[in-house]
Design a protein around this nucleic acid. Sequence first.
DNA 1: AGAGATTGCTTGTACGTGCAAGCAGAGTGG
DNA 2: CCACTCTGCTTGCACGTACAAGCAATCTCT
Lengths: 149, 149
Amino acid sequence: MATSSHAPLRTSDQAAWNRVLSLHSYVERELALALQRRHGIGLSEYRSLEHLHHSKTSELRMQDLADKVGLGQSSVTRLVGRLETAGFAFKDLCPSDKRGVYAVITDEGRQRYQAARATYAEVLSSALNTFTADPELGPTVQALRAIQV
Amino acid sequence: MATSSHAPLRTSDQAAWNRVLSLHSYVERELALALQRRHGIGLSEYRSLEHLHHSKTSELRMQDLADKVGLGQSSVTRLVGRLETAGFAFKDLCPSDKRGVYAVITDEGRQRYQAARATYAEVLSSALNTFTADPELGPTVQALRAIQV
DNA sequence: AGAGATTGCTTGTACGTGCAAGCAGAGTGG
DNA sequence: CCACTCTGCTTGCACGTACAAGCAATCTCT
């Protein structure tokens, strides 16, 4: 619950965003905890592996990966470094542009991703279901789920 | 954009959550940047001041504040510490339970909050409007805004 | 062909956060 | 009334991230 007494005078955008924040902090924490405890990887690691796994060529340029996981360049440098020491990915130089670096997923990385995948889906759904009884967040989750693109 | 080629086989919950993640990372970054550059405060500081300002008694227990801003206890200890050195709040012992600590907003804290308030609302709305043309995120923003509680 | 600007990534550094341990005050049962 | 447990907050420590500077490769323009 974010609103207090004293008439906060929020625009509807602020009310909407507060709902997003409440959902986000809870769900992300649940996902991170479950992934770490059941598979030994962090949320960013999981999402990187996901994108790499689904990439046609099993590889992604560092900046592309950064965009996909929503991090900055330097964070991804270190993230892929962690994946590398864990054996889940390695770096490969781009032959046509020697500045460019590809992050490439390994078989071990795929295996770990596939092992974690069910956990992610399951924890996500159950975390979202947590709010179904909430008068404010329940309808929000419902609305998010209903969107078809 | 989170989906790649290769048929990721996502549940609708995952698709919904990916939309939330995209929105969240962009909007929060915009808010944090604007608040820091135009008012010299971080997002957590702003939200703390918001809750303290709207509290009837101008004060909040540490744990209550933690719940409201979505942080852990220790983070709030340090957050209020920062507010204290900035002159925006101070700590006060609870007379009835000497373990308890209140964070109390100062006049200077109120002023800074009120100065930042317009920025927050404005940047939030414009950040959300950024997505109106997006085929996936546009409808999501619309849905979030439409919820009435 | 060469100077200057630009791109793609990495490194130095600082900061905010979480977890777990620590600690004082408050509550509880014999 | 004294141990025991519990509660509320703080401290020690480690980690992930961001920003800015650095650096090498590429591109551009004359």
